[in-house]
Amino acid sequence: MVGKGITPLRRHRQREHFARAVDAHPGSAPVDDEELADELAVVALLRKAAVTTGPDDEARARMRARVLGAAATPPATKLDLPKQERRTGARGRLAVALAAALCLVFSLAGMSLLLSRDALPGDPLYGVKRTAESASLGLTFDERSKGYKRLEFAAARVTELETLVERYPEPEGGPLGGYLTALTDFDADAAAGSRVLTALGSNSDQRALEDLGDWAASHATRLTGLRGLLPGTAADRAGTSLDLVERIAERASALRDRMNCLTVTSGQVDQLGPVPAADGCQERPAEPGTSTSATPTAPGSTAVVEPTTSRDAPGTTSEPGSESPGTATPSATPGPTTTTTGPLLPLPTLTLPSLPLPGLGG
C-alpha cells in the first residue's frame, strides 16, 4: 500500500481513509473497495479472535474491580510504619554515616602523616608533623625513654635546619621564620631531655649522664657548622642554642664527677635539671656487707680451725696443751670455746631383768 515517492500529505490521507473504512465496515470490506480489501480482512479476523479467545464478561468485571480497588488504595508511607521500625531504620542510616565519616577522617589523617614526614618549618604540614611527635611522646610511659625521645626530637630540628640550608644556599634567601621556629623547638626539646636524664643520672644512673654528654658534644659541633650559613638574625639565635648545648654538656660532666660523693646535687633544679653540689666532695662510706680480702698467713704458721666438741671414750683424758697426732692446734677466735679438763667419769651400767613371756621359755 505504501510505495516510493509518497508525500507526507498523501500518507496522511491514506491513513484517514483506512480508519474510516475500518469504522464503516466492522465485518468485511465492500466489493468496490479493492484497495483496502486485504487490510480489512485482517481486521475482521482480529476482531473475531478477540471475541472467541478473550475473557468473558464475568472475568472482565473481576479484573476491572481489582484495578479500580488497587487505584483507590493509597501507597504506604513512612508515617504508616510502626515507630520501632522507623527508629531502627534511622539508627542504621546514622551508623552507616558515622562509619563512613570515621573512615574518611582516618584516611585523611593517614595521608597527612605520610606527607608530613619530610615537612620543614614553614611548610603547611609541619604542624601535623609536630602533632604526631607529641602524640608519640604521650604514648611513652618510661621516664628514661621520654628523655631520649626528647633528644631525638631536638636532633630532628637540627636536621631540618641542615635541609633548609641545602635548599637555600644564599643565607638571606631562606625562610627566616622557619629557621627561628626550628631553633626554638630545638631549645625546648633539648632542655626537656636534659631535665629528665640529669634527674636519672643524679640517682646513680651514670649511663644516662654519659649519653647526655655525648649528645651535647656532637650537636654543639653541628650547630657550630650551621651558624655561619644562616641569616644574620637566625645566626644570633643559633648562638643562644649553642650556649644551651654547651651548658648541658657541662652539667652532665659535673654530675658525673660527683657520683662517688656523699652529696651529688644541691637540692635545687633549674632549666637543665638538678644543680650539682658546690661543697667539697666527701666520699661515700663503704656499704655494709661488702667482702674484704683475706689476710694471707705467714709461711709455717698454723691455719685457723674452728674448735669442735667431741665426746672422748670412757677412761681417756684430755689435758691442756696435749695434742693428738695429726691434728691442728686451735687458735684463739672470737666466740665461746669449750675446754674439757680432768678425767671423764664412766657412765654406770644398768642391768634389766629378763621377763618371761607366755608360751616361751624363761
Results as ranks from 00 to 15, higher is better:
64 R>G: 13
65 A>H: 10
67 V>Q: 11
68 L>Q: 15
68 L>I: 14
69 G>V: 02
70 A>W: 08
70 A>V: 13
72 A>Y: 00
72 A>V: 02
73 T>Q: 11
75 P>E: 14
75 P>L: 15
79 L>H: 12
79 L>G: 11
79 L>W: 14
79 L>E: 10
80 D>G: 07
81 L>A: 07
81 L>K: 14
81 L>N: 12
82 P>K: 03
82 P>R: 04
84 Q>L: 12
87 R>G: 12
87 R>E: 13
87 R>V: 15
88 T>Q: 15
90 A>T: 12
90 A>K: 10
90 A>R: 12
90 A>Y: 02
91 R>F: 05
93 R>M: 00
93 R>H: 04
93 R>Y: 02
94 L>W: 06
95 A>D: 03
96 V>S: 12
99 A>Y: 08
100 A>H: 01
101 A>P: 00
102 L>F: 08
102 L>H: 05
104 L>A: 14
107 S>Q: 01
108 L>H: 09
108 L>K: 08
108 L>D: 08
109 A>K: 06
109 A>R: 06
110 G>T: 04
110 G>W: 03
110 G>E: 01
110 G>I: 05
111 M>F: 08
112 S>P: 04
112 S>N: 07
115 L>K: 15
116 S>V: 00
116 S>P: 00
117 R>N: 12
117 R>L: 11
118 D>V: 09
118 D>P: 14
118 D>R: 15
120 L>K: 04
121 P>Y: 04
121 P>Q: 06
122 G>P: 01
122 G>R: 05
123 D>Q: 00
124 P>K: 11
124 P>A: 05
127 G>E: 13
127 G>V: 11
128 V>D: 02
128 V>A: 09
128 V>L: 04
129 K>R: 15
129 K>W: 00
130 R>I: 07
132 A>T: 02
133 E>P: 08
133 E>L: 09
134 S>F: 05
135 A>M: 02
136 S>K: 14
138 G>A: 15
139 L>V: 05
139 L>P: 03
140 T>N: 10
142 D>P: 09
144 R>T: 01
145 S>A: 14
145 S>I: 07
145 S>T: 13
146 K>H: 02
147 G>R: 07
148 Y>I: 02
148 Y>R: 10
150 R>Q: 12
151 L>D: 00
151 L>F: 05
152 E>N: 07
152 E>C: 06
153 F>K: 12
154 A>P: 00
158 V>R: 04
162 E>V: 04
163 T>H: 06
164 L>E: 01
165 V>C: 04
166 E>H: 14
166 E>C: 08
170 E>I: 10
171 P>I: 07
171 P>M: 06
